[in-house]
């Protein structure tokens, strides 16, 4: 009896143990995974998800200057916002601004990237120049263009006068201000867009071009039939990023126009900023922020849906 008992135990006990050990291991790997993700999750929670819900919450209230909720007003902030001509102007300017900047930035950057993708002597120099605006901050770029658009001593008006045209109040004329801001933005975003597109071009397999050369394809035929289709994932990415960036424009406005003249450059983020931190209307500002969030959400979803169908992935 005494002899056989330990024998039975030695085969039975490990059997039971190893199931529970397995479960413990699963819990341990889960804990480990969470531990690795914890810092990111925590910060996303505190500085992204919580503020997003808080914004939604605030948008249903009136607040005091410290941002504490005072009166629940339901959808009043939204209704007031949609009825406000200033907000209409802001939305109109924002969409116009996106329309001005996105296609232009991408076309110019693509043109530069195609040029700079040729294997020529000294091409590195040109690539560096084209990339350079990526290293220039909003503040510095805005200051550069503030001078260029300066009504009396500015470089652009100087040229206009030289060729006998009338000078333009770029930043003070409601007709031109948004365009001026758009030009600044296009210039600023050129570096980044160029760099990404160039990377996309360079990752296209050179065999494709070589086989097209053997077939005697022309430069533009290759551009249309190889370059653009093979570049489509990159283009897709660049378009998404540029659109989202355009909706988030702030610094240029703050330095160049402060939203003026006549609110023509009061783009949505600037509008939120002014409403919240100049007028202390955190409720209505939050309502606008929610609109911004929804717009970007919709944009992203549309991009993905369209992208899935149109984009040519290898």
């Amino acid at each position: 009896m005494n002899m056989s008992n330990p024998m039975i135990e030695s085969t039975e006990i490990p059997e039971i143990n190893y199931e529970s050990v397995k479960r413990k291991q699963r819990i341990r790997t889960f804990a480990k995974g969470m531990l690795f993700l914890l810092p990111s999750l925590l910060l996303f929670g505190v500085f992204l998800f919580y503020p997003l819900f808080k914004t939604l919450y605030l948008s249903f209230f009136l607040t005091n200057a410290r941002g504490e909720t005072t009166v629940f007003v339901g959808l009043q902030n939204y209704l007031g916002m949609f009825a406000s001509p200033i907000f209409h102007q802001s939305m109109k300017s924002t969409f116009l601004f996106v329309l001005y900047t996105v296609p232009t930035t991408i076309i110019i950057a693509l043109f530069l990237a195609v040029l700079a993708n040729e294997k020529l002597k000294g091409i590195g120099f040109f690539r560096t120049i084209f990339t350079s605006t990526m290293g220039i901050s909003v503040a510095a770029a805005s200051v550069f263009w503030l001078y260029l658009f300066h009504p009396s001593i500015g470089f652009i008006n100087g040229i206009l006068e030289m060729i006998g045209m009338e000078s333009i109040g770029w930043l003070t004329d409601p007709k031109w201000a948004l365009i001026a801001v758009a030009v600044t933005t296009i210039w600023m975003n050129l570096g980044f867009t160029f760099l990404v597109l160039l990377g996309g071009l360079q990752s296209i397999d050179s065999y494709l071009y070589e086989s097209a050369d053997i077939d005697g394809a022309s430069y533009f035929y290759k551009l249309r039939r190889i370059t653009i289709p093979m570049l489509s994932p990159t283009l897709f990415f660049v378009i998404t990023v540029t659109i989202i960036n355009a909706f988030q424009t702030f610094g240029q406005i703050d330095i160049l126009t402060q939203g003026g003249p006549q609110n023509t450059t009061n783009l949505i983020v600037y509008s939120i900023y002014r409403e919240a931190f100049t007028n202390y209307q955190f409720g209505t500002a939050s309502a606008q922020a929610i609109v911004l969030f929804v717009i970007i959400l919709i944009m992203t979803i549309i991009q993905f849906k369209l992208g899935e169908r149109k984009v040519h992935y290898q």
């Binding site: 790997t29 500085f47 914004t55 605030l58 909706f247 988030q248 919240a276 931190f277 922020a289």
Partner: peptide, 29 residues
């Protein structure tokens, strides 16, 4: 690491890309 809920968390990370910082700037402040 392979653990339960990893894919869900990955989706959560993707979701953060859709929230512009500017939209949550008021509570952040």
């Amino acid at each position: 690491l392979e653990f339960k809920g990893r894919d869900l968390l990955f989706f959560l990370f993707i979701a953060t890309m859709m929230v512009p910082f500017e939209a949550s700037i008021i509570p952040n402040f």
